[in-house]
Simulated scan of single mutants.
Amino acid sequence: MLRRRTARLLVVLAAVCALGAVLPSAFAAGGLSISPAILEHRAAVGNVGSVVVSNTASTSLKITVTPRPWRQARSGAVSPDRSKTLRSVVGVSAKSFTLAPGTKRTVDVRLLRKPSGGALYAAMEVVGKPTKKAPGNGITAQYRIISSLRLTAARARHGVRIGDARVSGKSAVVAVRNTGNTVDPVAGSVRLVGPRGTVNRSIAAVRVLPGGIVDLKLAATSALPKGSYTATISLTQGGAKVASAKRTFRR
């Protein structure tokens, strides 16, 4: 005989564009919201601002607030690293509390020590769990919202390092590491010399976390006949040229 269990539904709204895209003033996931969507401040030790957590659900929620580092995929997409916290660097005035329906609470955020490199780009994860389980075989909804904490360096430093070019999936790509301390977009151009001559292409802008590595797309493989290619790459960041290199790869 099957056992009846109460299912739990996790509602998630992740700020995957939170490194710098235009975002709404607040994020909401069903019965939970956080404002602002991006908390931005200079990376100075002390108070760097506050967020407002609101419960618009019909039941009380047990809230937890956790600063976490971003994890960036080679595609450029970001997500919070739930295996780590930044509590030794970022402090919050209330880590855990209960919100009654229709109420809200302001949580102050402090930078506890100067971050390495002078800047910190992090996620603020807010989870709301109902204080009462759903009756019978109902669904208990848990809410998880992710906003962005962007603490910028007093002096911006731009820089990228160009790695190897290769074919990955349906694209020819080049690996790029951000050696600076900003998330200003990395863009540029490439001149491809291959079996059918020379082709000039632009490289779409991508934001890369400091220290992170992202694959920038050079061209779709469907546009490249099989053979050997030489790519002459020029990259810009913050409105200035920051790197150039020549790389070879085979299609």
Rank of each mutant, 00 (worst) to 15 (best):
G212E: 08
T232L: 00
G76Y: 09
T103R: 15
G46Y: 13
R251N: 15
D215C: 03
I145L: 13
V160E: 04
P225Y: 09
L39I: 01
K95N: 13
T56M: 04
T236P: 01
T182M: 06
A21C: 15
P130A: 12
L151T: 09
T56K: 07
V186H: 02
F249L: 10
G49A: 11
A154R: 13
G49R: 08
A220R: 11
A57Q: 07
R150E: 07
I233L: 02
T140Q: 13
L120Y: 05
L235G: 11
M1R: 05
L149M: 07
V190G: 06
S58T: 14
S222L: 09
V16D: 14
A240G: 10
A154P: 05
T140Y: 05
G102V: 00
R105F: 14
S147T: 14
F27N: 03
N181I: 03
R68W: 06
L235W: 12
A73I: 01
K132G: 06
T64N: 15
G118P: 00
A44K: 15
Y121Q: 02
L61C: 09
S33L: 04
T198K: 10
T103G: 12
G138S: 03
R113Q: 11
A153L: 02
G194T: 00
G31A: 03
H158T: 12
L99A: 09
T152V: 12
C17Y: 14
S79K: 05
N55W: 07
T179S: 14
S244K: 07
K62I: 02
S75G: 12
L39F: 11
A172D: 06
N55Y: 04
V45E: 13
A219Q: 12
P69L: 04
R87S: 15
K62P: 00
H41G: 14
A240L: 05
L99G: 13
V16I: 10
I139E: 11
V45R: 12
L216M: 11
G227F: 02
P130M: 12
F97N: 01
A175I: 00
G212A: 15
I145A: 08
A37H: 01
T66W: 10
Y229S: 07
P135R: 10
S60W: 01
G49K: 09
N55D: 07
L99M: 11
D184R: 04
L2Y: 04
L111A: 10
V16E: 15
V242Y: 07
A57G: 10
S189N: 10
V183K: 09
P185Y: 06
A154W: 08
I145W: 05
F249T: 08
R113L: 00
V12M: 07
N178I: 00
T85L: 07
A100F: 00
V53L: 11
P195S: 04
S33M: 01
K217N: 15
A240N: 08
A243T: 05
A119C: 04
S168R: 09
L2K: 11
G31N: 00
A14H: 13
T152W: 08
V193L: 02
R71A: 14
A153D: 03
T230P: 00
V193S: 09
G31L: 01
S96C: 06
V90N: 09
T6D: 04
G159K: 06
A44N: 10
S33E: 05
